[in-house]
Amino acid sequence: MSRRSASQRSPDTARRRFLTLAAGLVVGAGAGLLSSPSRAGLDASRLRAAANGQFGSAGVSVINQWLTLVDRLRGAPLSTQLRDVNDFFNRHLRWLEDRTIWGQEDYWATPVEALGRGAGDCEDYSIGKYVTLKELGIPVERLRMIYVRARLGRSQITQAHMVLGYYATPGAEPLILDNIAAGISPASQRTDLDPLFSFNGSGLWAGGSTRSRADPLARLSRWRSVLERMRQQGIN
């Protein structure tokens, strides 16, 4: 399926999203942290039931493909896990705006919802990859969803965008998993991206800081909402 770039998101939508999230980050500076399990824990029967209830047999089929991917990658080299998870979501999701998919300006979908629809925006790609890599045993401390300003083409117009970062150590340069790039690259090679903040299940960081500044569950309501829906669907 085709992958659309962040440039196809309307400027007004991207600007409102960035301002809302940035405000939450500033307010949250200094808050305490809330830890979360380092593994997702996929309940296959509940995932299939959730997919069937929303999307029928087609939804179950794509969830089975996802579960097969996870089983195949258990114990595989890290580079293979990162590459194949990145490729799976980039192939199975078509980039569309939330307003088109869900009738909402900004909706963070669970992997069941995104794969069932076969479409998502940058947050949905990143969430799916994050959940899958956690299930494969990668510690949550090494994974962060990173909000960036993406500079587009020669015009240098910027848009809000999200990618997933893998950190070998907390202070290391991350590898970037992105839906608008063909492969995985070190952050230093992605000169088109300027980090704004990053988060995972246990912390929230400003820019390239190595020190968490806030509790992401308290400050990012959409993250809190998608985690709750994932638990209901069988992702713990």
Results as ranks from 00 to 15, higher is better:
39 R>T: 13
58 A>I: 02
109 A>D: 07
187 A>Y: 10
180 I>M: 15
119 A>K: 07
110 T>L: 03
227 L>C: 08
72 R>F: 06
111 P>H: 05
54 Q>T: 05
43 D>S: 12
83 R>P: 01
10 S>L: 15
169 T>V: 05
165 G>M: 05
15 R>N: 09
190 R>W: 07
99 R>Q: 15
16 R>A: 15
229 R>H: 05
78 L>H: 06
186 P>I: 07
44 A>K: 09
97 E>V: 07
41 G>Y: 00
39 R>D: 06
44 A>W: 02
76 A>I: 02
28 G>A: 07
1 M>R: 12
32 G>T: 11
194 D>I: 12
25 L>W: 02
214 A>M: 04
186 P>W: 08
105 E>I: 03
92 H>G: 01
219 R>M: 11
197 F>M: 12
134 K>C: 10
16 R>V: 11
19 L>M: 09
88 F>Q: 05
200 N>M: 06
187 A>P: 00
159 Q>I: 09
198 S>L: 04
79 S>C: 02
52 N>K: 10
9 R>E: 14
135 E>A: 04
202 S>E: 15
156 Q>P: 01
211 R>P: 00
86 N>R: 13
69 L>W: 04
184 I>S: 03
236 N>E: 10
25 L>E: 07
218 A>V: 07
40 A>N: 08
6 A>M: 13
56 G>F: 01
210 T>A: 10
122 C>D: 07
218 A>E: 10
38 S>T: 11
146 I>D: 00
151 R>D: 06
199 F>C: 09
181 A>T: 13
172 A>W: 01
139 P>D: 08
65 Q>N: 10
130 Y>G: 03
152 L>N: 10
25 L>S: 04
2 S>I: 13
170 P>N: 06
88 F>H: 06
7 S>L: 11
148 V>K: 01
64 N>Q: 14
40 A>Q: 14
175 L>D: 03
37 P>I: 06
223 W>E: 04
217 L>I: 12
100 T>I: 15
78 L>A: 06
189 Q>F: 05
230 M>H: 00
213 R>V: 15
181 A>E: 13
161 H>D: 03
212 S>Q: 10
67 L>N: 07
173 E>R: 02
